[in-house]
């Protein structure tokens, strides 16, 4: 039996939704790969049973659960040790992890020790005739798509979050095997200590997790005008992003930067306000489900990737839109 593993990322003691997206990917691969099953790997401490059950209800045939108080928070060194040990014991064919900060830290740290290949930030996964994993990812700022094969086993990839929908709960009756694993961790396995977590209090949350992102660029005019971007994001329940240009100008902080030197995002809706659409920005957002762009310049590149483009001054259009949304809200 060939095992397709998903790394079920836990954050703050709970399974993150991104694991359910990986199940969608894994179920698709299972269909194409003969004689295969989907297993989830979950590392953490005191993760509620309902989260584990949910992984099974959404498609996992097996769950490897490694519980230890020392594994309460993600730390790359012990997590990697655990993952390596699991791989050596259960020899999966494929491991897919989310291309989150956790996945993009754990997987490369693990892959080189296993002397196997790893493909970063994939947007497409498939199986070829020989049963090999085909991993497709954007490169050179999204200008090229490359399909990559791995000669060694396991075949490992990280997958861009939000690039697929979460797997649905099937019938609520699925049975899966939960394998509880204990792994001895010594002090040597825990060189790094996690001292603190400082929550990002900016409204709308982080852009990587948001379903809706309202982003501002130079066309917003000045730092002070960003308040209309925040206001619109608030009305739409979204996070606030910015182009490199405005981050460089200090109009908004770096954690909000969308693009090549910032974050790649994949929300359901991306609203680009006064962003011209330099390649480096497009690379970070062009795979969003729906894109609305507002820009003064009718020739702006951003309109090439937009579902709806409005040629207008952001500072005129957005306040009018906010007003309409507020009216619509009060009518409900």
């Amino acid at each position: 039996m060939k095992e397709i593993w998903i790394y079920a990322e836990a954050r703050g003691g709970r399974v993150n939704e991104v694991a359910h997206e990986l199940l969608t990917r894994a179920l698709d691969l299972k269909e194409k790969l003969d004689n295969s099953i989907v297993s989830a790997v979950l590392i953490g401490h005191d993760i509620p049973d309902e989260d584990k059950q949910e992984l099974i209800q959404r498609g996992a045939d097996k769950l490897y659960y490694v519980d230890d108080p020392k594994l309460k928070d993600f730390l790359v060194e012990p997590y990697s040790k655990v993952l390596i040990q699991l791989v050596k014991e259960y020899t999966p064919e494929i491991i897919i992890a989310p291309a989150t900060t956790q996945g993009r830290t754990l997987m490369p740290y693990t892959a080189v020790r296993l002397r196997t290949g790893l493909t970063a930030d994939c947007t497409g996964l498939d199986i070829d005739e020989e049963g090999n994993l085909l991993q497709t990812r954007p490169a050179i700022g999204g200008n090229i798509m490359a399909t990559i094969k791995t000669a060694t086993r396991p075949q490992m990839s990280t997958v861009r979050p939000h690039s697929t929908r979460p797997a649905p709960i099937m019938d609520g009756q699925r049975q899966g095997e939960i394998i509880n694993i204990k792994i001895q961790l010594t002090q040597e396995d825990l060189p790094t200590a996690r001292l603190d977590f400082i929550k990002d209090e900016t409204q709308g949350g982080t852009i990587q997790d948001a379903d809706v992102i309202v982003s501002g660029g130079r066309g917003v005019g000045k730092a002070d005008n960003f308040k209309i971007v925040y206001k619109l994001a608030e009305l739409l329940g979204g996070a606030v992003g910015g182009s490199r240009d405005v981050v460089d100008r200090g109009w908004i902080g770096y954690p909000h930067q969308v693009g090549l030197s910032g974050k790649t995002v994949n929300p359901k809706l991306y609203i680009a306000l006064g962003i011209s659409g330099a390649i480096q920005h497009l690379a970070g957002m062009q795979t969003s489900d729906t894109i609305i762009a507002v820009n003064k310049d009718p020739d702006a590149q951003i309109f090439r990737v937009s579902d709806l483009g409005i040629v207008a001054d952001v500072t005129e259009l957005v306040p009018a839109l906010i007003e309409k949304l507020e009216v619509a809200k009060s009518e409900v």
Binding site: D73, R194, D196, F197
Partner: peptide, 8 residues
């Protein structure tokens, strides 16, 4: 995601 983690 969600903030800053402090490591030693």
């Amino acid at each position: 995601e969600g903030g800053y983690e402090v490591l030693n």
